[in-house]
């Protein structure tokens, strides 16, 4: 069992996951399944962003869906209304989400804990209202059509589902790669020290505002990138994109997968998207199954699927090291990273 666990959190299993993702379109029963998976990947990218500010840095951001919508609308407006090419518009969308994130962060991060959460909840609603009502810019309830698909530079046609799937996968891999590097670095440790407690972090000389702001801007940038990809996949955006419910969906993904873990966002998002899909035939009644399932999960695995697994593995590793005698302890060095970096 322990050996299996080591296998699961090792490098090999990451490559295996990647291989699975690469062959998925070949094995999928329909194009629709590929489409669902691509959208799951996009949501996962946004959840990786949420994981930076909420999972690593401990600040519950309830405006995350709003920044996703900002990215989507920025791309839509620039390509459909202003005729920009896709890639410049895509970069601009990420920058807009980052800039709005910086502004919102500067104000909201002065608040602590639930005050911050409530404030950002309001920000999420304001973003929704702005998108719904500011018709000159967003076309209001009509939404925006004619959004550019990612430009394949004449080599690939990303308006096709399968090529788009691989593009989304590439961005997801990039998102995970950076999250992993961040979590293992001194900067990630700084964020985690803040999650552990403002007072202690500050007494260690950590500038709270500066680090929280950096984590917040990183998270909104992730959300903006995901939103822009989403808009270029659906090729249509409407105010529904900014519905605060999306934020709660993403929090659920993160909760189930595991806050502050590297593979929690992926496991939670892809897992729940597929469970939701397979319960589609129940329509709105699927919440009858889904609700209790999540309640049970949160009660028995408060740290999420991945978090629970890693916690268990860390204990096993240290026990194994102790059983081998005190000197062997030094050998477990890579395992201590498991908690944050697997």
């Amino acid at each position: 069992m322990h050996r299996l666990a080591s296998l699961l959190s090792g490098r090999g299993s990451r490559l295996f996951l990647l291989a699975c993702a690469l062959v998925f379109p070949l094995l999928a029963k329909s194009e629709y399944q590929v489409y669902v998976m691509a959208s799951a990947f996009i949501w996962a990218i946004a959840v990786y962003g949420l994981n930076i500010i909420t999972g690593y840095c401990g600040q519950l951001n309830l405006a995350h869906g709003g920044f996703f919508a900002i990215g989507a609308y920025a791309l839509a407006i620039l390509t459909a209304d202003h005729g920009w090419n896709f890639w410049p518009a895509f970069v601009a969308a990420a920058l807009v989400a980052a800039a709005v994130g910086a502004l919102v962060g500067l104000v909201s991060l002065r608040l602590k804990e639930h005050f911050f959460a409530i404030f950002t909840l309001c920000v999420g609603f304001i973003i929704y209202l702005l998108i719904d009502k500011w018709e000159e810019l967003t076309h209001g309830a009509v939404g925006i059509r004619g959004i550019a698909a990612p430009d394949g530079l004449g080599l690939v046609d990303f308006s096709q589902t399968v090529p788009f799937y691989y593009l989304a996968l590439a961005f997801l891999v990039l998102a995970i790669w950076f999250a992993g590097r961040l979590a293992a670095s001194l900067l990630g440790r700084t964020f985690m020290a803040i999650r552990n407690g403002d007072a202690l972090a500050q007494s260690l000389g950590i500038d709270l505002m500066r680090n929280k702001l950096l984590a917040f801007v990183l998270s909104t940038t992730y959300a903006g990138v995901a939103g822009a990809l989403y808009a270029s996949m659906i090729r249509f955006v409407g105010p529904e994109e900014a519905n605060p419910n999306h934020t709660f969906d993403m929090i659920t993904y993160l909760l189930v997968g595991g806050f502050g873990t590297l593979f929690g966002p992926l496991a939670g998002t892809v897992g729940i998207v597929w469970i939701t899909q397979s319960l589609q035939f129940l329509e709105d009644y699927r919440m009858i199954i889904f609700g209790p399932l999540i309640v049970v999960l949160v009660i028995f695995m408060p740290r999420g699927v991945v978090g629970t697994f890693l916690g268990w593995k860390l204990r096993k590793d240290t026990e194994a090291a102790r059983a081998k005698g005190p000197r062997a302890g030094a050998k477990v060095a890579p395992a201590k990273e498991a908690n944050t970096n697997a």
Binding site: M192, A193, L204, I206, K336, T340
Partner: peptide
Amino acid sequence: HLFEQATVLDNLIVGHR
């Protein structure tokens, strides 16, 4: 208040940040 789910060393590394 230490981070209980992490190892002792992991708790300490950020001290020199």
